[in-house]
Amino acid sequence: MAPNPQCAALAAAKEKKGWSYAQIATAIGKSEQHVIDICTGKVTPTAAEFDAIAKVLDITGPPPNDSAHATKRTQVVTDKSQQVLENQTAVEGAILNMTTHIPPTMTPQTRPNHTHVTITHVDHENHRVSWALDSMPSWLLRSVRWQSVTPVEGGKAKYESIEVFNGLLVIFIKWFIGTNLKKSFDGMADGLKARAEQSS
């Protein structure tokens, strides 16, 4: 017998509709095992997968703010059809699905930020990577982010992160989330520094 969903609301919606995991999987174009893993909390769904499951089960409300729905910051590499790639190493042309908190926090939030970007450059030799937000018309909003790591004297490394925004919505980005977005970039840099120093 298939395990019950970890989320009570999801279990209730699944029972109300009378659908099996196999039917949900067919409806969203995923494997049955992957759907089971999502529903039982073994894997974190991409934003597209989360929305697709909610849609087919007619779930319209936000998830409860409890321990079963504690949102982790995640990065999942998929192809353009949102199929999770077995190799999660960044590759040009793949889609990076990110679940983040703006401003940065480790406290679970009911509404995390979900972003899908296209990985545009992976330069292993020079330790650089870039991705672009291209889900909107470029005249409306487009952003390109570059990140690089370069060696410096004393056995240290310099991490740089640059994001360039273009389009009509740029002024709204600056006004409404500009300050918190910068805090998020700083938080990522601080976290990366702490992780690197812990591993060294």
Rank of each mutant, 00 (worst) to 15 (best):
G93V: 07
G93N: 12
A94L: 04
A94R: 10
L96Y: 02
N97M: 10
M98P: 01
M98F: 00
T99G: 10
T99Y: 07
T99P: 02
T99R: 15
T100D: 13
T100M: 12
T100W: 12
T100A: 10
H101R: 08
I102Y: 04
P103L: 05
P103C: 07
P104M: 07
M106Y: 02
T107A: 12
T107D: 09
P108D: 14
P108Q: 14
P108L: 15
P108K: 13
P108F: 12
Q109N: 07
Q109H: 06
Q109S: 12
Q109I: 15
T110E: 13
T110P: 02
T110C: 06
T110M: 13
R111L: 14
R111A: 12
R111P: 00
R111Y: 13
P112Y: 15
P112N: 11
N113L: 12
N113R: 10
H114F: 14
H114P: 03
T115F: 06
H116C: 09
H116P: 04
H116L: 08
H116A: 13
V117W: 01
V117D: 04
V117I: 11
T118Y: 01
T118K: 05
T118A: 03
T118R: 11
T118D: 01
T118G: 01
I119P: 02
I119G: 03
I119F: 04
T120W: 01
T120G: 05
T120C: 06
H121I: 05
V122N: 03
V122P: 03
V122F: 05
V122T: 03
V122I: 07
D123F: 05
D123E: 08
H124G: 00
E125Y: 03
E125L: 09
E125P: 00
E125S: 07
N126W: 01
H127I: 02
R128V: 04
S130W: 03
S130V: 00
S130D: 05
S130C: 08
W131Q: 06
W131V: 03
A132N: 08
A132I: 11
L133M: 10
D134A: 11
D134R: 08
D134V: 09
D134F: 01
S135E: 04
S135A: 11
M136A: 11
P137I: 09
P137M: 10
S138E: 14
S138H: 04
L140P: 01
R142C: 02
S143T: 05
S143G: 00
S143F: 05
S143R: 01
V144H: 11
V144Q: 08
V144M: 06
V144Y: 04
R145M: 07
R145S: 06
R145N: 01
Q147G: 04
Q147M: 11
Q147S: 09
Q147C: 10
Q147E: 09
S148I: 00
V149G: 00
V149S: 07
V149M: 11
T150G: 00
T150R: 08
T150A: 11
T150H: 06
T150W: 01
